[in-house]
Design a protein around this nucleic acid. Sequence first.
DNA 1: AAGGTAATGTTAATAGTATTCACATCGATC
DNA 2: GATCGATGTGAATACTATTAACATTACCTT
Lengths: 197, 197
Amino acid sequence: MTPRAGYHHGDLRNALEQAALELVAERGPQGFSLAEASRRAGVSAAAPFRHFANREALLAALAMRSYEEQRVRFARAAGGAADPIEQLARFASAYVGFAVEQQALFDVTFGAGLVKREHPGLEEAGQRVLDVLRAPAEQLRAEPAAALELIHTIAATAHGFAAFLREGVLTDRARAEVSAAAAARVLAHQPDQRLPS
Amino acid sequence: MTPRAGYHHGDLRNALEQAALELVAERGPQGFSLAEASRRAGVSAAAPFRHFANREALLAALAMRSYEEQRVRFARAAGGAADPIEQLARFASAYVGFAVEQQALFDVTFGAGLVKREHPGLEEAGQRVLDVLRAPAEQLRAEPAAALELIHTIAATAHGFAAFLREGVLTDRARAEVSAAAAARVLAHQPDQRLPS
DNA sequence: AAGGTAATGTTAATAGTATTCACATCGATC
DNA sequence: GATCGATGTGAATACTATTAACATTACCTT
């Protein structure tokens, strides 16, 4: 965290990402500007372009970071259980927790208007986050298509709860975590073929 | 669509909203600027401020429109069925359909970085959209808290599928609609108290 | 150790944006 | 028909992103 020694910064790329995250945390998903981030890093407004093609690219780098962080958190959360259903439930709960505890990362990834299609690595990194669900889903559904659908359904539900919390539709984090986990359990239990009555 | 008659536009507020929507449709959630919208409406860059407090306020107005549109669409969709479970399923499917058919409205509402907390009417309008689920949820869950949880869970799942489609996590609209509806049915069927085995 | 090169910063310029203020025009009302 | 409030205009301010030409430095090669 040496702000500046001489002419060169030494770790500008990181300092800019850090500053950007803080700006998003302070001012919301739009409140980030390269100029202000540069100011906080103590460099000129042109310096960022040595490290990022443009403003979007910085956001994309943060989104990538976000996906990495998600991957490890969700893997750790799911790893805490042996039962596949419980693994899915813990993923859902952890997903909601991430949106709250890492608001800035979550906002950058989903609320800053980043167009992921234009940043090839991003879409793939996003998909990789869902790999955590692969093993438990395949234990619960023999048919590959059914396993994939379960993955998407659990993830969509978790994402919905997380987004609603960030949007203000929901306000109680703990309740959202519990509901997301409960939904995951219900969805995991119930293969479509065996709908009651 | 009278672009301009004399000094006064006649319907500038609407023209600006329309132009803004088109910009979002063409250039993504960030691609909208007051200046460009003004240009398309054929007025000066200062004109919008007679109708909107600032740029955010225009977005907020569009989000309000979006919620209205959602309300009628979802009510119509759910109204097509008598069975409460089927009403929930149709809501979920319609939610996904809205995100695809009205991309610009959906993007403005959820992907443009609008901070809804700062626009009082918006949060309420968002909640009102979920009122469509009230009657079926209460038929399925006697306990008010359980009914509310069901509402939130169905809506979150639908929103997740919709968001994943817009994000590129999913690409097949029809499949997403079917999965969302299927998830809704499973979630509706299964009161937490009666988890199998 | 010397020197060349690529990486990393700086300054200055351009172009676009939001927002405000003083002024212009117009529609409706007394 | 004069007046007033609503709606537009133009010019000014203050940011922002981005680029180009130039400066400094780290590092690699000899």
